[in-house]
C-alpha cells in the first residue's frame, strides 16, 4: 500500500503540487486523471525520487520513501515507468530487462524475467533484438517489463497511452490490471486519456492545477458529466 499525505512540490515560484493525499491499495489500479499540466507527471516523478518535494511525505507499506534516492526507492519496491517508452534503444530487449533487476541475484532475476515473458510473450520472441527495432506498443511492454523486473509491490505508470493505438493501450492496461488482481500489485496509473484509464481502474482521482478535486470509484467519476466538462475537457 502506497500512502501519500500532504505532498507539495514547487518548481521555483511555481507550485506544481499542493497538499496531495491519496492511497494506492494493493491488488487494484488507481487512476489519476487530469488535463495537461495538472501535475500528474510531477506526482509520479516525486514519488519515484526524481523530484524533491517541498513538503509532505509518502510511505510504501509504512516505510517512508520521500527524501530517498530514486535508485533506493526502486530497490524498496516502488517502480516507475516514466512517460514516453522509457527503454534504452541501444540495448537489447533482454539487456533492458536485465537492467531492471540488476541488483537482484541471478535466480530471482531469471524468475522475474520468465514472468515478464509470460505476461508479454512478444518480448520473449524478440529478446535478442535491440530495443529500437521494436514497435511502439512493444517498447511500452518492454518498459513495463523492465519495471516489473524489480519485483515491485507498487508500480507507477505515467501516460502509457501516449502515441499508441487505442486498441494496444487497452490490451496493455488490461494485462496490467489483471496482474494487479492476481499478484496483489498496487498500480498507480496516470493518464490524460480518462476514458481508457477509468475503464481499468477501481478508484479515480481527478487532479487539477496541482490539487485533487475529486476522489471516488472510477465508475462514478466516469459518469460524472460535470466533472468531465470542468476538468477533463470532453
Amino acid at each position: 500500500m502506497l500512502t501519500v499525505s500532504e505532498l507539495s512540490v514547487s518548481y521555483g515560484a511555481v507550485r506544481a503540487l499542493a497538499n496531495v493525499s491519496l492511497t494506492v491499495p494493493p491488488g487494484e489500479v488507481t487512476a489519476v486523471i487530469g488535463a495537461n499540466g495538472a501535475g500528474k507527471s510531477t506526482l509520479m516523478r516525486t514519488l519515484a525520487g526524481l523530484v524533491r518535494p517541498a513538503a509532505g511525505s509518502a510511505t510504501l507499506d509504512g516505510q517512508p520513501i520521500t527524501g530517498r534516492k530514486a535508485e533506493d526507492i526502486v530497490r524498496m519496491g516502488l517502480a516507475l515507468v516514466p512517460e514516453g517508452r522509457s527503454t534504452i534503444p541501444d540495448l537489447t530487449v533482454e539487456e533492458n530487462l536485465r537492467l531492471g533487476g540488476l541488483w537482484r541475484n541471478r535466480s530471482d532475476r531469471a524468475a522475474s524475467q520468465a514472468e515478464v515473458f509470460d505476461l508479454f510473450p512478444i518480448l520473449g520472441q524478440r529478446r535478442h533484438l535491440r530495443a529500437d527495432t521494436l514497435s511502439g506498443g512493444e517498447r511500452q511492454q518492454l518498459a513495463i517489463g523492465r519495471a516489473l523486473m524489480a519485483k515491485p509491490r507498487c508500480l507507477l505508470l505515467d501516460e502509457p497511452s501516449l502515441g499508441l493505438a487505442p486498441l494496444i493501450v487497452t490490451q496493455i492496461l488490461e494485462l496490467v490490471s489483471g496482474l494487479a488482481r492476481n499478484s496483489g500489485l498496487a498500480v498507480l496509473l496516470v493518464e490524460q486519456n480518462a476514458v481508457t484509464a477509468l475503464r481499468v481502474a477501481t478508484t479515480g482521482i481527478v487532479l487539477n492545477l496541482g490539487e485533487i478535486v475529486q476522489t471516488g470509484p472510477a465508475a462514478d467519476i466516469a459518469s460524472d458529466e460535470q466533472l468531465r466538462h470542468a476538468y477533463l475537457g470532453y
Partner: peptide, 15 residues
Amino acid sequence: RASAFNPEVARLSGV
C-alpha cells in the same frame, strides 16, 4: 552502458 545512454532510466532501474 545504461548510465551513459540514459541516466534517468538507469536510476529508475536501481543503478
